[in-house]
Amino acid sequence: MDEENAPAWLRDLPISVLQRRLQRGLRCKVGPFVVCFQGQERSLAERFHAHYPNYPLVDENRFADVKLQIRRNPTLGRQRWTTRAISLEDGRVFTTFPVAATLAHIEWSMNWAVANRSHHFLSLHAGVMANEHGALILPANPGAGKSTLCAYLMHRGWRLLSDEFTLLRDANLAVHPFPRLIPLKNRSIDVIRELVPEAHLAPPIPGTHKGTISHLRPPDVHLRAMHETAVPRLMIFPKYTAGAKLSISPAARADCFVQITQNSFNYTLRGEEGFRMAVALTERVQPYRLEYSDLPEAAQAIDALMQEAAA
């Protein structure tokens, strides 16, 4: 075994080795998927070392579910030096972006690929956290505070499965973790900085189509548990409203079902099985609506709801 193949974690690779691996195609396990990242530049290796250190490496010959090639933008003249491009398996330019936004576009490209291809799961656009009682699913529209809530809960005793994807498989509805960087947006960045001083945040990326983004790196423990599925127990539809008093109310199961189907990336594609899984999930969880403005207060209420659901 040579020095490049021995390490099990990305953080164990020296930058120069990591760069060589990236040039050939670096394969990492990201939840249930193998993702292959490919790129030439040393700065890319440095980014990976800083932001993805806790991902396990897999053999270079393993089949990759997603392949992302990060390279200079081939279609522009002067901007060739200040912009980059990502291609998927077909080699065509999938997205272009300023160098500073590389991390955001790697994450978004991975999201796109998983949402559009992983139809062996019923996938929901929903955050999902777990504790010893089971999984808490958080479906929400953009802007409802889902990622911020996941970021806070992750540092307060909950395990991060994903802030974006709930991946359900089989009749037993096991939720498969897909732990990733959490993209905090705009004011949420300062909120988490203030409430969670130990949070590891990447430098903010201003001017994206979602405003300023800073990626929060999940602590190692969350990635080490990326193979442990969780059983759905609680479903909360969160809504952040500035200045709002905490409000919790049970949600009707019919509404819960509608939310599941509307927040699914592939409900229609899954056909009758998708219907049966959505019904089973609706029956399995205790559904609530939560409006909040204070994160610690919301987290305390969520802890209590999970205790109650598990009793």
């Binding site: 009707a252 019919a254 079902f257 229609t268 056909g271 219907f275 049966r276």
Partner: peptide
């Protein structure tokens, strides 16, 4: 029929079209 009911509301999955009706 593939149908599920919660209270006064039902959802029917129509195999032929792949659509779910409320």
């Amino acid at each position: 029929l593939v149908l599920h009911t919660w209270g006064a509301v039902s959802f029917v999955y129509h195999r032929e079209s792949g659509q779910t009706h409320f």
